[in-house]
């Protein structure tokens, strides 16, 4: 009887330990594995931030967002590609930092990008982005 108990305890320890180890070493999730929380138009996203940043943060911050708009420009610096989306009026754009570099889209092209919203500086910033079809 005691033997069984020991085996069970050992099993629990091994399972618990390996789960903890797995959790601890888990890589940051790729955008592909995350479900979209909100879909929004680039202009609407920027104007939400320009008019009331706190309210926009409640709605979009840390969410997985699918933003659609027209490409303004694409820049690659130190291997990091940033795609800017055009917006109507206002100063700000949507800055999407891509998870992996892709063939630079043409300015004016319609695009839909999925990424995690990290907030608003000069632009609304999305990180870990990927183009969705």
């Amino acid at each position: 009887m005691k033997k069984y108990l020991l085996i069970i305890i050992a099993l629990i320890v091994v399972l618990g330990g390996s789960t903890a180890y797995y959790m601890y070493n888990k890589k940051s999730a790729s955008i592909e594995d995350l479900k979209t929380d909100v879909s929004v138009d680039a202009s609407a996203l920027v104007s939400a931030y320009e008019s009331d940043e706190d309210a926009a943060n409640t709605e979009y911050l840390e969410k997985v967002i699918e933003v659609s708009g027209k490409v303004d420009k694409s820049e690659t610096k130190d291997g990091i590609q940033s795609i800017y989306l055009q917006t109507e009026g206002g100063m700000g754009t949507v800055l999407c930092q891509m998870e992996e570099e892709i063939t630079a889209p043409v300015s004016g092209e319609n695009i839909k990008i999925k990424g995690i919203c990290t907030g608003y500086l000069m632009d609304v910033v999305l990180v870990k982005c990927k183009v969705v079809n």
């Binding site: 959790m23 601890y24 070493n25 888990k26 890589k27 940051s28 999730a29 943060n57 911050l61 840390e62 930092q97 995690i116 990290t118 907030g119 608003y120 500086l121 910033v125 990180v127 870990k128």
Partner: peptide
Amino acid sequence: VLVKSFSFEKALMEEHFNENYMEST
């Protein structure tokens, strides 16, 4: 800089950084 834009190698570190230490919300 946006605190939430920092990326870490391990997901758990990123979570602790944002939620426990920097309170980035």
